[in-house]
Structure formats: C-alpha cells, structure tokens
Design a protein around this nucleic acid. Structure first.
Lengths: 342, 342
DNA sequence: TTGTAGGCGTTATCAT
DNA sequence: ATGATAACGCCTACAA
C-alpha cells in the first residue's frame, strides 16, 4: 500500500504538499498540483482514513439509532439517510435499538463505540421523563417526535397536520362515518396522540362529533394484523363505516384486507387512507392513498444538520448554538383507495 | 478525553501495563490490574479505537452491501447481520447497491472507502460473467446465490430444496392444480430458476406434469402487486387452481389478496405458501405458511466466516484457504394459509 | 512482571 | 508556495 511519503517522493515534493493537494489547499502552483496528481494516479494511492481520523479527531462517520430495519418504515428511512450521508460524504453506522428502552439507552451511552462523530436518534421507547438523557456531550439530532428536550435538535414530521389532512380528504368526499385505526389506550405524546389530534380537529372544524364507536384499537403494535383485527371489531359491532383513517400504512393494509374479505368495495363503499407512504402502499389492490410525511426531507435535513453540528464543534468552544426544530413538508399521495377527485 | 498516559500516571504504572490489562495479557499481578482498572474507572477512560486501528491495521468494521433496506427481506437480513456482528464485537457499515450493476461494482471497488476489514456482499444485479470481479484483495463473503466463482466464500440458502418442500406440502394435502408465482422469462441461475427447479422436481417425483397454464409471471419484480397481477392472469384465463407456491412472501400476499377478493377461501379452496418468512407473513389473514430459508443462520455463519477470514489474513501470508460453501438449514413454517395436518 | 523507544500515516505549526 | 518536524493515541519489540 502506497503512502503519502511514496507519492511525495515520486512527485519530488514534500508530504505536506501532497496533503495540501488532497485537501484542496488553494495556494499551490498548478504544475506542482499536476505532478502530485499524476503520482497519486500512478501509484493508485488512497488516503488512509484511519490515520486521518487519528490526527483530525473526526472519523467521518455518523451513527443511526433506529428500532428495527425490518419494519419497512425504518428500512426505507435508513435508505434515505444513507443516500443523504453519501451526499455529505460521511459513512453511517447503524445501531438497532429493538424498540427497547435498554437498547436506546445503550445507543445513547456509547454510540458506535467511540468511532462516530455524531448520532441520529429515532426514539421509540424512551419516555418524556428521560429527556435529561438526551443532553449528551456529542452532536445529537433527534428524528421523530418532538416530545423531548427543547435544547436538542429535532427533525420531524407534521403528525397532526397530516392526520387532519387525511381526514379532511375523506370528509371532502362526503364521508361522515370515518373509522380511525391505531388508537392506543396508553398514549403519551407519541405519534398516536398527535395523529389522533389531527383526526379530531378535522371533524370538529366541521362541527362533527367524534364517535368512540369508530375507534380501532391497536395496543399491540401498528402491524397489519392489528389493523385487520381493529377493523373487524368495529364491523362486528355493527357500526356503520364509509371511511378509514389509519395511523400507518400497515394498519391501513390490514383494514383494507378485512373490508374486502367482507365484501366491502374500496373506495366505493369505504375509502381508506394510510400514513407513511411506504413502498408497499403502491402495490396493494387498490393502491393505497396515504400521507407522505416527507421522509426524504427529514433524512436530508437531519444529516445536513448533524454534519453542521460536527463541524461547529471544532470551531466554537463550548458555546452551544440554539437548538433547531425542523418540521418536514407533508403531502397527501392520492391513489386508488380514495375516490378520484370530481 | 483521558488517554492511556493519564491512566498510567494515575495508577502509577507505565502505559504498556495499561495496554496489557486492556488486552487481557495474562502475566499481571492482581494488585496492579486492580489499580489500573480503578484508574480507568475513575477517569472514565475509553480506548481510542482510531489509534488502535492505525496501529493494528484493522478497523473492527465490516461492510454489508445489499440492494435496499426498504425491502423487508433485506431489512430483516440486515437486522440479523447486525445482531451477529455485535456478537463478534464488530461494527457494520451498510452500503446500499440499489439493485443496480453500477451500485454493486462501486461497492466491490472501494468498500467502505477503505475503513472496513472485509465485505459481506449480497449480489442482485451482477451476472455470472462478472465472476472475475469477485476476486478482490480483501476478505469477501457472498450472501445468496451460489452462481459465482468457486474460489469465493458463499453462505446461502437451499433454494431448490425449499421450493420442493413447499410444493410437496401442498401435494401432500391432495392439491394437484398448483400455480407457481414469480416466474421470470429472463431467468439465469438466480433464485427464480432454482426455486422453479424445486417446484418442477416435486411434481415430477410424483409423476405429475408441469402445466405452463399455472405459471404466474412477475418479470417486473417480486412485489405484492405483481403477485396479484400474476394470480389474476391465471384466474382470468379460467385455469383451475387449488394451490399456490409463490417465490417470495410479497408475491404470496398479492396472490392471496387477489384470491380473496374473488371469493376464494384460503386455505379451503386454495392453499398458499410463500418463501422467506418475513415478519409480515405472520400478520396476513389468514397467516401465511412459508419457507424459512434460515436467514438468521446465514447471517451468523457469514459474519463468523468473514471475521475468521479477517483474522487469517494477518496470520498466513498469501496462502488463500479453500473457499467455503455453507447452505443454511431451511424449514417450512406452517400457518393458516395451508390446511392443518390431518 | 513491567518499562522504554519507536512507528503506524496523516495533518498542524512554523519556518522559509 | 513549499518544506521540516512534531504530534494524534496506541501497540509491538526489546530490554530490564
């Protein structure tokens, strides 16, 4: 493996000049630069990232702590984060937290075993009372709920607005018996609570009452099976339904399944809308209308923000900049499970 | 940040002794070890992984090149790999290849930008003619098809055997009109060809003919929607069907959907079996019987093998050990979409 | 059983 | 505009 010394020797310059060329130092004669580049090319030289890290104190890697990549939403989020990181020229170390408090605490305590410059953290099990744990001594950006410390950077989605827009879409089509799938009995300030607030607001804005008979409970997780069960429970109770707002796409798919098995036509008899816009939503029959919460934007902004924080840490000393709260744009993706616009 | 020098000073020993304690060197007096450990604890000292890497020439990280984490199979595979890596005390750098040849070539060419010790590679777009590209100068273990060089380590699944067992299960229940979903016109030596071979073998073993009218084509990808379309094409042609073997779970779900929408009962009228055992398969209605190809085992064995290769590289010089081919155990997971055993 | 010296490949400092 | 030299923090010889 060739080193900078070899390149310098071949180009007839000092190692420092090679380093300067590599790092875009401006004051270099063109002829010198050319000779160095030629030598690099000839030797097939590549910088030793490890040595650079040791010297600079940065690894060029960031961590991503998410519950589980097998869950399509998080798998797709990870894909988006990886794409954004490639853009910023950083590598990503993924740390699955398994939906557990211990997993999340471990990720916060020793992220990447000391070889990352900062952490993107998507909490799923921590409670509001754990907020103090987020005051760590490395750059940290939170993805998802804004239920934590106002002193920590957040990049998240418009949960309430999204659910309100989803409900409005069905209301606009004249639906008045709109089931809401994904309710949790033990809801704190998480997505469930925020999305329910949007559902309620949409109804109340039109002077309509919220009917608990239309609540579909999914305390065991927002899985497809629980969506089907929740839908079944509502239908079994003989409740009249002409629309469904589900808190995520998996629940929506389960509900669609149950409706179709019972002979309800979608969207003619019942219109259905989900949340998240996962890839699978394109491939249901009919395809699923859903809320795109701006996952790509979240990924891009979060990675950029984290990289900025990493850079800032080198500059300023001790003076923490104001925490940022970024809410991504959301939009409705209309597909076959809701009626075509008039 | 405390360094080894600080620890040594506080403990009243040399840095070498601290290093020895950290690396489990046996000949250390207990009292010395205790003093060192106490100093480490007091200073909250953590080894600088970067410096260690520079010195040792290893980073303690491996790469994982997969098409896309958003696809549940790969997301779950990544979870399993990450778990196995944690067991081996290595970190994983994920490199999405996006189902493209360029992406896979890039991953092979400069994996992890020089900061990984070895690569796990799950090819999806490379052709058999690209086999020579796999002869790289770093440890490489292939996941998936064994369609490549016999000089490269492979850890993969029993594709043919799995599909044969799946077909046998339906045959055992007396099904004789078994559709096969996921056929590709342009099949090389990939999963589609191997799994079709299993389907065919099962029929031929019982002296049954293969009927092309039962072929469900999915040239546009093994997505749920294409499973539904393939099923619809068969049913629209008026072909009699009492069983379905799908080449993956997504296709199976699409086929189930289409069958149920048309009023066929599962498993009474049509029995359905998938392949991969993704998490979602538990949550369909009815739950999906499928082939568990041994994904966890594949992940564990592949990570262990790669770590061994990394270690070996330090020992032997130039002498490549014989390439390993490991086929994971597969098994059928019986659920509601096939009839209960008599 | 413990200590000393030196180097892994790069970048920062300070000259020139 | 370029060069010499000293770190960065750890580990391996070798010495004691």
């Amino acid at each position: 493996m060739a080193t900078m010394v070899d390149v310098a020797a071949l180009a007839g310059v000092s190692v420092k000049t090679v380093s300067n060329v590599l790092n875009g130092y401006p004051y270099i004669r063109d002829t010198t630069r050319d000779r160095v580049l030629a030598a690099i090319d000839e030797l097939g030289y590549q910088v030793n990232v490890t040595a650079r890290s040791l010297r600079s104190g940065r690894t060029g890697m960031i961590g991503l702590a998410v519950p589980e990549l097998g869950q399509p939403y998080f798998g797709e989020l990870a894909d988006d984060i990886l794409a954004a990181a490639r853009e910023q020229d950083v590598q990503v170390l993924i740390e699955p937290t398994g939906f557990t408090r211990e997993g999340e605490l471990a990720a916060l305590r020793e992220p990447g075993r000391g070889l990352i410059d900062g952490l993107l953290f998507s909490p799923a099990a921590l409670e509001q009372t754990d907020a103090s744990l987020l005051e760590v001594d490395y750059p940290l950006v939170l993805l998802g709920e804004q239920m934590f410390s106002p002193r920590v950077d957040h990049v998240t989605m418009r949960n309430t607005e999204g659910a309100r827009a989803a409900t409005d879409l069905l209301l606009d089509h004249g639906r008045r018996r709109i089931a809401v799938i994904g309710m949790l009995h033990a809801q704190g300030a998480g997505s469930a609570a925020l999305r329910y607030a949007g559902y309620r607001q949409a109804l109340e804005n039109r002077g309509l009452a919220v009917d608990p008979a239309l609540f579909g409970w999914a305390d065991d997780g927002w899985h497809r099976g629980n969506g089907a069960l929740a839908m079944a429970a509502i239908l079994d109770a003989g409740v009249d339904v002409d629309g469904v707002v589900a808190f995520n796409d998996a629940l929506a798919m389960g509900a669609m399944f149950e409706l179709q098995v019972r002979g309800r036509r979608i969207p003619e008899d019942v219109a259905v809308i989900g949340f998240d816009d996962i890839e699978d939503a394109r491939y249901t029959v009919p395809s699923l209308t859903t809320v795109d919460p701006g996952r790509r934007e979240i990924a891009r902004v979060a990675v950029e923000l984290l990289c900025r924080r990493v850079r800032e840490r080198g500059d300023r000393d001790g003076v923490r900049p104001e925490a940022v709260l970024h809410l991504a744009d959301m939009r409705i993706v209309e597909r076959g499970s809701t009626p075509a616009r008039a």
